[in-house]
Amino acid sequence: MDGKSAVSLEVVLDRCRHGPGQQPNILQTLLAVQEALGHVPFNVVGEIARGLEVTEADVAGVLSYYPDLRTHLSGRHLIRICMGESCVANHCSRVLRELRDQLRVDVGETTPGNRFTLEKVYCVGNCAVSPTVIIDDELYGRMIPSQVASLLDQYR
């Protein structure tokens, strides 16, 4: 870890410290750490635990429970394909197949060169204009396989 990140972690932990008589909020602390560092590497679990005065097991337990807490940095662009039932009914599996073919990675993997990470998500509430693909914070609805290549080009 470089020096810059270490400072941010300290600052984050300081901000998340609970007052006397209060319980520490492990989840919100981990989300704040992730916001600062981009992920929550396993090697900071000890420091977080000490900062919150809880056990490392408490922190690791929360970290491993929530799918949106990441222990590894994702690629520069995070692509998520919605697997909610409305997307499934609109044959999002075909869009997923195209994404896999274009990126040459499977769900949960990152492309060589670290440009794209492909993940799935269960419903983003965009069901009425499904299938949905989310790249970073941008939502794309009514996706069809033939649009995948040009969509990816915007992020290359």
Binding site: M83, G84, S86, Y122, C123, G125, N126, C127, A128
Partner: peptide, 11 residues
């Protein structure tokens, strides 16, 4: 925490 796929009225 509107998790049911196919729903978005809370959103």
């Amino acid at each position: 925490d509107e998790g049911d796929a196919g729903t978005y009225c809370d959103r």
